[in-house]
């Protein structure tokens, strides 16, 4: 395992754990997207380019778009939506 792969894996774990502690949902979606991007590079380094393409397209592209669309629909992109969420402790 090369130094590059170890760095990627460490960053992957950091992304996965940091999603727990992010309060704003939009930021969590962006971190989730970066998780997918790292995973795509890792698939490529594991010599499975098919999976890498799919991971990049689905994980980075479609999932992020659908997440952000859902957040927009429930008005969670605005600042006051965030305040409400903190109030209810969800």
């Amino acid at each position: 395992m090369t130094f590059f792969e170890i760095m990627l894996l460490l960053f992957l774990i950091a992304c996965a754990i940091s999603i727990f502690f992010i309060k704003r949902l939009v930021n969590a979606v962006v971190v989730f997207m970066s998780y997918s991007a790292i995973m795509a590079v890792l698939w490529l380094s594991l010599e499975s380019p098919d999976l890498a393409i799919t991971e990049a397209a689905v994980g980075c592209g479609i999932t992020t778009l659908l997440f952000i669309l859902a957040l927009k629909k429930v008005n969670a992109l605005k600042e006051d939506g965030e305040a409400d969420r903190d109030e209810h402790n969800i």
């Binding site: 380019p49 098919d50 890498a52 393409i53 799919t54 397209a57 689905v58 592209g61 479609i62 778009l65």
Partner: peptide
Amino acid sequence: SPGGGFSGGTILGGTLILAHL
């Protein structure tokens, strides 16, 4: 080459979504 229906279809769908956006 690597790829195929699923990944290519996802890229096409995502591109259409971007245009819609």
